[in-house]
Computed example of a mutant assay.
Amino acid sequence: MKFNPAQLEPKQVYKLLSGSVVPRPIAWVSTISKDETLNLSPFSFFTVASRQPPMLCISIGPGVGEREGTIKDTLTNIQNQKEFVINIVPTFLGNEMQQSAENVPSNVNEFELAGLTPVDSELVKPKRVKESPIQMECKLHQIINLGSDYLIIGEMVLYHIDEEFYAGNYKINLEKLRPLGRLAGNYSESADFFTLPNKDLK
């Protein structure tokens, strides 16, 4: 079988991509609006963009469901404030993450909605999720409009990690972290780890 994306609806192409590019890590992005409303939302189009300087990127599409076609609050806040925090989602915070993904009005504080604790960042204005074991403070580097979506590239300026999840020598205890991943419309838990003989893969 083969599919020509030019002959498909965007939702059909999205299903093919989101079911093939898996598992995808989840960026739990915290931002703050001009009126200082706290915002928290998960995005699974997320990866490292650069090692030096350290940069992370997330792709943000238009609103869906009740907010079909609107601009997401996360994008608006990043455009205005030029700062954000990426919090990593372990499996034990899956329910809270899912709750923060609900379509709610812009004046709703998703920290409160999900029962999470906001804590001050040190170099950026948006808050961090206290319950998340890893939080990365980011300053906006660039926003690139790509078709219907926006690629947000941010430079990581400060990295926070709970000592219980730090394995030493700048490594993460992944068995303890058990990060949540996205598999099309479902989720995956990274729990089984193994090595392969070929170590040349970067």
Rank of each mutant, 00 (worst) to 15 (best):
G168Y: 14
K130P: 00
V89F: 04
L113D: 03
L151F: 12
S41L: 06
G168L: 13
A6I: 07
E189A: 09
E163P: 06
P5D: 06
G61M: 09
P105C: 08
M97Y: 02
F111S: 02
V124G: 02
G181M: 15
A167H: 08
L17W: 15
K130N: 01
T37L: 14
D120P: 08
M156W: 06
R178V: 14
P10A: 09
K11R: 12
K171Y: 09
L140D: 14
N103M: 03
E9T: 13
R51Y: 12
F165H: 04
S33G: 06
E189C: 07
Y166P: 08
T91C: 11
V157H: 13
K130S: 00
E122P: 01
P118L: 05
I143V: 13
P105R: 05
G185D: 07
S100M: 02
I26P: 00
R178D: 08
P25G: 11
L56G: 09
V64W: 14
F92C: 14
I88K: 02
K15E: 03
Y166R: 03
V104R: 12
S44L: 09
K34A: 12
N80V: 01
A167M: 10
A114G: 00
L75I: 03
W28A: 06
I58S: 10
V124N: 01
S18E: 10
G94M: 14
N77R: 05
L113I: 10
L146H: 13
D162E: 03
F43Q: 04
S188I: 03
P42M: 05
S59Y: 06
D73M: 07
K82T: 11
E155I: 06
Q52I: 04
G69T: 01
L40K: 01
K15Y: 08
M97G: 09
K130R: 02
E122W: 00
V21A: 12
I78C: 09
E163W: 03
W28G: 09
K34G: 14
Y14V: 08
T76R: 10
L56V: 10
E122H: 01
V21L: 15
R67H: 14
F84Q: 03
K34W: 12
N198T: 06
Q12H: 12
I152V: 12
G94V: 15
I144C: 09
D162C: 02
R182L: 01
I134L: 00
N198C: 11
I58N: 06
G65R: 10
E66N: 12
S30L: 07
G94D: 15
S188C: 05
E175G: 07
S18M: 10
T76F: 12
N109I: 04
A101R: 04
F45D: 00
V89E: 04
G19W: 14
L56A: 07
L177T: 05
E137F: 01
V29P: 00
